[in-house]
Write a protein that binds this DNA or RNA. Structure first.
Lengths: 171, 171
DNA sequence: CCTCAATATTTGAGGGTTCAACAACTGTTC
DNA sequence: GAACAGTTGTTGAACCCTCAAATATTGAGG
């Protein structure tokens, strides 16, 4: 039903390392976030993306793209963030189907408060152990895989260009 | 409250790539699994770990360690896998607190049926794009980080040695 | 204008995960 | 051997995510 399955022994080993790595990292990030702000990491990313957008405002669908989540997931997420007072939703002026999500002042404050400990977690866990060469190698590895994702055998990708502008920072 | 936070620009870029990569990979794996077997990837790992154990049987706590989940999570998971008839639970003979989880024949069949497409997803997405050097580099990167995890600034790790023996394969 | 397919977003149900509390048992210590 | 701390595993509530269905709107064509 597809091309030759199975992983080589080397691939197996690396795959298990990758799984272990991610499990551990994720656990720490989520614990950290939960402690610091009572929200999951995914919600933090939503706030971060908004903070980098002009007017700290984005259409729901763009925000979903940037935060890499489904529209449904985002809708639930923003509902919750709105309850907390960190995001506000207003109807889009030009398209009456749309909604604009805006980061509130309280949301921005929250982001600023949480960011340092999050960044520290990521840096100390993931990056401190790596040499400069390894950091570069990891960057290229991710890029190669991402670039090739979409050709493979699956759905599709619409590939917006990236948009460097670190207001508060992803990590 | 911790050592110098913030990521360098390079680290930021790599971190975002990593996030994008994982989001995409995870999405495909989960979609694949759900389609092929109606269970999440985490449950597949539980079956896989059992398949590699002597007698296809493990104490709940060992299984939780190997599958990298909390006991609570595993308990819920095994409850569900038991409903599906893929795992059976029996009281441990030596310790009356304990439970043994055993992979049933049906569970093994399920694993064998699902494994190829899963392996193919992982290989084609993650490994096909990589050169041999990149595969090796990735392996080392994961190892370095994992080795240093536990010293860092966090909780603790008990570090069991690994245990090569691919009955059906993690991926 | 009317219809129809496509887009944008929300909703609710179903299931997964976490966290804290609990129940049962073990091993040690006095 | 009674008390107690520690281990093993389960439970229920709260929350998050997915999927499919619903709602509202747009834009293209006839």
């Amino acid at each position: 039903m597809r091309g030759d399955p199975w992983l080589s022994d080397d691939q197996q080993r690396v795959w298990r390392s990758y799984l272990a790595l991610h499990a551990l990292l994720n656990e720490r990030i989520e614990r950290d976030m939960q402690q610091a702000s009572g929200m999951p990491h995914a919600y933090y990313l939503v706030l971060a993306m908004l903070s980098e957008a002009p007017e700290r405002t984005l259409r729901m669908s763009q925000l979903a793209d940037l935060a890499q989540m489904s529209q449904s997931r985002l809708s639930h997420a923003v509902a919750r963030l709105e309850e907390k007072g960190w995001v506000r939703r207003t109807p889009a002026p030009d398209d009456r189907r749309g909604q604009l999500a805006t980061l509130t002042a309280a949301g921005y404050d929250q982001l600023v408060e949480v960011a340092p400990s999050h960044a520290d977690t990521v840096r100390s866990f993931m990056f401190d152990p790596l040499s400069d060469q390894q950091l570069a190698a990891l960057g290229e590895i991710c890029q190669v895989i991402l670039d090739r994702a979409g050709h493979g055998s699956a759905t599709d990708e619409d590939a917006d260009e990236h948009d460097e502008d670190a207001e508060v920072g992803t990590a």
